[in-house]
């Protein structure tokens, strides 16, 4: 029984993390009573389970995640949505429209969502055998109008949201901007263009510095600096 890391160390694939009676979580694997890292990321231990929180990687759909996607195809019974993952998502009419609309929808699905339009959706089901199933029925879900879209590395989304939403709520209130973060790394912003620009810079910084500490405070400082700067310019 021995550990070969400190909490939050950055580790590389194949690195020995622990020997003996430990379990492996995501981003790690176990062989011959030894736990190794499988991806580049930050190690963590919770109880006897060792995780590696990845720093890089594609978005893999998971049930109940909120994602932002683009309609890429209209099929007989719904839409295909690009959610920035290896698997395109299926949005059946049943999960997109009310029952009354659904019966009329046979005529022309483009009336609701056309190709190229962007939707906020929730993943209903995702497993290894089929493409993920999504819905746009629900609070905060549906078509997006106006605003700006940006993409970040999906593995760094938890950092952008922060503990119980601390980071994202700070951004929203400090900048009075509407921000929706998809777990797939797509972010939608709407508000005053100057403030949106500041928010986008801040999000880029969060993405870049995702593996460092004290981030919320550092971001808050940069934002207030930039806000006072832009005020100064106007006067």
């Amino acid at each position: 029984m021995s550990l070969h890391f400190e909490q939050q160390d950055i580790v590389v694939p194949g690195q020995l993390l622990a020997e003996g009676d430990y379990r492996h979580g995501d981003g790690a694997f176990k062989e011959h009573e030894k736990v190794f890292a499988a991806v580049i990321g930050l190690v963590k231990m919770k109880g006897k389970t060792i995780y590696v929180v990845p720093l890089q990687g594609q978005y893999i759909p998971k049930a109940r995640d909120i994602v932002i996607g683009k309609i890429i195809e209209i099929t007989l019974n719904g839409w295909l949505v690009d959610i920035q993952s290896p698997y395109p998502a299926m949005l059946p009419v049943m999960h997109a429209l009310s029952r009354r609309d659904a019966t009329r929808a046979k005529e022309n699905l483009r009336r609701w969502y056309d190709i190229g339009e962007t939707v906020v959706a929730e993943i209903i089901a995702a497993d290894r055998t089929r493409d993920p199933l999504i819905t746009t029925r629900g609070r905060g879900l549906g078509k997006i109008r106006g605003g700006v879209l940006m993409k970040i590395t999906p593995t760094r989304v938890p950092r952008l949201i922060g503990r119980k939403g601390s980071m994202i709520n700070m951004l929203k209130s400090e900048l009075q901007t509407d921000i929706v973060v998809g777990q797939n790394g797509v972010v939608w912003l709407k508000g005053n263009p100057d403030r949106v620009a500041i928010a986008m810079d801040a999000i880029r910084q969060i993405e870049r510095e995702a593996h460092t500490g004290g981030l919320t405070d550092r971001i808050r400082e940069t934002i207030s600096e930039k806000l006072s700067e832009s005020k100064g310019e106007k006067e």
């Binding site: 590389v12 694939p13 194949g14 190794f36 499988a38 890089q56 990687g57």
Partner: peptide, 10 residues
């Protein structure tokens, strides 16, 4: 490794 693809080792 840089792409974040899970590997047994380098």
């Amino acid at each position: 490794a840089d792409a974040g693809i899970p590997m047994r080792g380098l």
